[in-house]
Structures are given as structure tokens and as C-alpha cells.
């Protein structure tokens, strides 16, 4: 349009605008191309299933897939009236609380211990403590099943040396959930300690110097400097552990298969069980999945709200 640039002053605004627009389109297109593969995968395998799952939750399918019955919200109403399912929710809550609080507390303790400045061997200490991070949930299940073995288990044998008659770890309702949670805490320990340690190390040394000058002892320093300044890290750990604890499958599957009497059947395990074990009812399982999804969203929302106020960012 503007072929005489030198003599006449061009109407710069429109030309620029157009150029900008063109550039914008190009940039958008290019940006989108970079995103496209990830978006595609996530859409197909994360977002679409949100819808499919809901559709499935409204049906009842014969165990071998040949027949489907529409039940409307029947699966949901039955779920909420199902005392077994309410028990499952309770189990899940306890399980999550144990893993989140015991797991994070232990990790913070170990992180503080590991942050003690040593000249030698600190890589070795870390190695020993971090190492569970490379262990899968299936292998964790196997290792702990061996340790918890009711007849020849090392744990009860060790307790016996201290005169304690160890409990029946995996076969009593009282202990099974704790036993599984301990295995999970163990597997996640490496991860938690690494993050907690990074958090501890990130704290500005001058705070401690100042505290030292004020004559604060170790405990005071931990209580009044380390922990408050660690709160963003702690918050992160809480969230991650919360989400992970709802995803625990391998340990439950290998240690207890959800038993005894449903004592270790968490919401995820119940979904798996109803969808793939015994006489599978995928619709019922999908309804459970949906309830869990809503629950996770709600809790995460509350956590973030709460954290917005409480977490101490440096």
C-alpha cells in the first residue's frame, strides 16, 4: 500500500498496526506449535477422560463388557449409602494424615540433622538417607512384605530382642494401615528430605548469626528461625505428600490387597478394585473416581486459600 516511503510521510499507525498484527499472528502460531504436542497428549489423556469418566459413572457395564445398563445417578446414590465406601473414605483420611504429617515431620528432622556441617562423609550420610527415592512402589511393597512377614519377619524379630511381642502388621485391622503408611513414608522419605534440606540450606545464614548473638540455643533457632522460614517448603511438601498419598497403589496392592476387611482399601484402591478385580463394575468405580476428583479439588482449594495467609515467603 505504501510504496513511497521516502518522500511522503507514511501513515505510520495503520502500517505498524498491521505489522504488529501480523507479527502477533505469527507469534501466536509459533507459540501454539511449541505447545501443541503437549496439549494434544494432555487433552486426550487428561481432559477428555474427565468427561468420559463422568459418562461411565452413569452406567453399569457387565463384567465382560457385553452389556450396559443406564442407571443415571444410581451409582452415586448407592455410593453414598454404602457403609463400606464411607469406611473407605475414613481409611483414606487417616492414611493421608499419617503420611503427610509423619512423613513431613520426619523429613524435616532428618533435613536439619543433615544440614549439620561436617567436613567428611556427609555425602555418604545423604546417600544412605536419600536412597529410597529410587525404589518403586512395587519393590517397596515387596521389601516391606518381607520385613513385616508374620512368621519370619525381621521387624518382629527385632522387636522381640527388646522384649516386645510385635503386632501382626499386615493382618490386623489395627496395624495394617499404619504398616502400609510406614512403607509409603519410607519410599517418599528421600524426596521429602531432599526438598526439606534444600529449604533449610536456603535460609540465609545471617538469621542464625543474629540469633546466635542473641544467645538462642539450637532448639530456639530451629523453632523460631528454621521452621517459620521453611514454611513455603513445608507447604509444598504438604501438598505433594497429600496428592501422593491419594495415589498410593503399589504398596497396598502388594502388602495387603486392601485387606484385612477393607482396612487398607483407600479410595484409589477401591476404584481399582471395583474396576478390575473380582466382578468388575466400571461404572461404580468411575463414580468413585469422580467423587475423589471433586474432593481433591476442594481440598486443594482450601489448602491454597489457607496457605495464602499463613505461609511465610522470604
Amino acid at each position: 500500500m505504501n510504496d513511497s516511503p521516502s518522500t511522503q510521510p507514511p501513515p505510520p499507525r495503520t502500517a505498524n498496526k498491521q505489522k504488529i498484527r501480523q507479527r502477533k499472528i505469527k507469534a501466536t502460531l509459533e507459540g501454539f506449535l511449541y505447545l501443541f504436542p503437549s496439549l494434544l497428549i494432555l487433552t486426550i489423556f487428561v481432559y477428555i477422560p474427565i468427561v468420559t469418566s463422568f459418562q461411565m459413572s452413569l452406567t453399569r457395564v457387565a463384567p465382560f463388557g457385553s452389556k450396559t445398563i443406564d442407571v443415571g445417578i444410581g451409582n452415586y446414590t448407592r455410593l453414598l449409602a454404602d457403609s463400606d465406601y464411607l469406611y473407605t473414605i475414613k481409611v483414606t483420611l487417616i492414611f493421608t494424615l499419617i503420611i503427610v504429617f509423619a512423613g513431613v515431620a520426619l523429613a524435616v528432622f532428618l533435613a536439619i540433622a543433615l544440614s549439620y556441617p561436617l567436613d567428611h562423609l556427609s555425602w555418604f550420610h545423604r546417600l544412605l538417607i536419600f536412597v529410597p527415592i529410587v525404589i518403586s512402589s512395587a519393590v517397596t511393597g515387596v521389601l516391606f512384605r518381607w520385613i513385616y512377614h508374620p512368621v519370619i519377619g525381621y521387624l518382629n524379630y527385632a522387636l522381640l530382642q527388646f522384649g516386645i511381642d510385635g503386632p501382626n502388621w499386615l493382618n490386623s485391622k489395627e496395624w495394617a494401615l499404619i504398616a502400609v503408611a510406614m512403607a509409603v513414608i519410607w519410599r517418599q522419605l528421600g524426596f521429602n528430605v531432599i526438598i526439606a534440606l534444600a529449604g533449610v540450606q536456603n535460609i540465609d545464614g545471617t538469621y542464625y548469626e543474629a540469633a546466635k548473638v542473641d544467645g538462642a540455643n539450637t532448639w530456639h533457632r530451629i523453632r523460631h528461625i528454621t521452621l517459620p522460614l521453611l514454611s513455603p517448603t513445608l507447604f509444598f511438601l504438604f501438598i505433594i505428600n497429600f496428592i501422593n498419598s491419594l495415589q498410593v497403589f503399589g504398596e497396598i496392592n502388594i502388602l495387603t490387597e486392601g485387606g484385612p476387611g477393607g482396612a487398607t482399601t483407600t479410595m484409589l484402591y477401591s476404584i481399582y478394585y471395583d474396576a478390575f478385580v473380582g466382578t468388575p463394575f466400571r461404572g461404580y468405580a468411575s463414580a468413585q473416581a469422580y467423587l475423589l476428583f471433586v474432593l481433591i479439588l476442594l481440598i486443594s482449594f482450601v489448602q491454597f486459600k489457607w496457605a495464602g495467609k499463613k505461609v511465610h515467603y522470604q
Partner: peptide, 24 residues
Amino acid sequence: LFFYLIIGSLMVPFQLTFIPNFVR
């Protein structure tokens, strides 16, 4: 928007998707 879309997928638990994905 896309960023939130992608990060949002972190909020969708595996528990919800694995049955439909298995079927698909």
C-alpha cells in the same frame, strides 16, 4: 490461558483418568 490449562492438568488425578484411558 494455555499455561493454566496445562498446569491445571496436574490437578486432575490419575485416579480419575486411568479407567477411561484403559478403555480408550
